[in-house]
């Protein structure tokens, strides 16, 4: 499957610093928790039918943010379209795994976890974790942890993303959502 990554256009608007910091903290934390090689947040640009790297931690951190690739394809495309998380292994032996895309990111993973960034019925994008360390993975529960991070990112996006159609008015709901997230995080961490 031929795919290519387009670098960020030089005219792109400067990112909201608070949003950028929040999303960066999500990918940094995901990277640390999973002992991964890379973690990224991809946002869906439905008008252009593309996905955009919005935050990256680890491999590709220096050059991927703002890059775009065609939506609807590959694992990130499936996750964005279906609204379901996905975990795959043994990719490096797989000659057809979005190789052109993976190579243009400068890193070809062997394992990949991806969860949708969902708010209500809207899918905003995808959170990816590349090559989580085997010790940090615990089978199915890893999907729960990843989904939790994805929800944090989605709530952050909902509050701060200028493109989101229902922005700040959702204050109470958002606060409730954050409270739920915190309580679920405690559950997952066994506190």
């Amino acid at each position: 499957m031929e795919q290519s990554i387009k670098p960020a256009p030089p005219t792109a608007a400067p990112p909201d610093p608070v949003l950028a910091e929040l999303l960066q903290s999500v990918v940094d934390t995901a990277l640390a928790i999973f002992g991964a090689e890379a973690s990224s947040i991809l946002l869906l640009d439905t008008a252009a039918d593309e996905m955009v790297f919005e935050a990256v931690s680890g491999q590709g951190q220096d050059f991927l943010v703002g890059s775009r690739f065609p939506g609807g394809r590959g694992i990130a495309g499936w996750v964005a379209a279906s609204g379901e998380p996905m975990v795959v292994d043994d990719l490096r032996d797989n000659p057809s795994f979005d190789r052109s895309l993976a190579q243009s990111t400068g890193y070809v993973p062997n394992a990949l976890m991806a969860a949708p960034l969902v708010h209500g019925e809207r899918i905003l994008g995808v959170l990816e974790v590349l090559d989580p360390s085997p010790g940090a993975r615990s089978a199915l529960s890893e999907l729960d942890v990843l989904a939790l991070f994805a929800r944090q990112a989605a709530v952050a996006l909902q509050v701060l993303l200028p493109r989101a159609p229902e922005p700040i008015s959702a204050d109470t709901r958002t606060r409730d959502e954050l409270r739920r997230l915190l309580s679920e995080a405690r559950d997952l961490l066994g506190e």
Partner: peptide, 17 residues
Amino acid sequence: QKVKVAWLGGTEIRTSG
């Protein structure tokens, strides 16, 4: 959990869900 499945290009990978 970690099911061996058919994947693109006539290959197989492992995946969960």
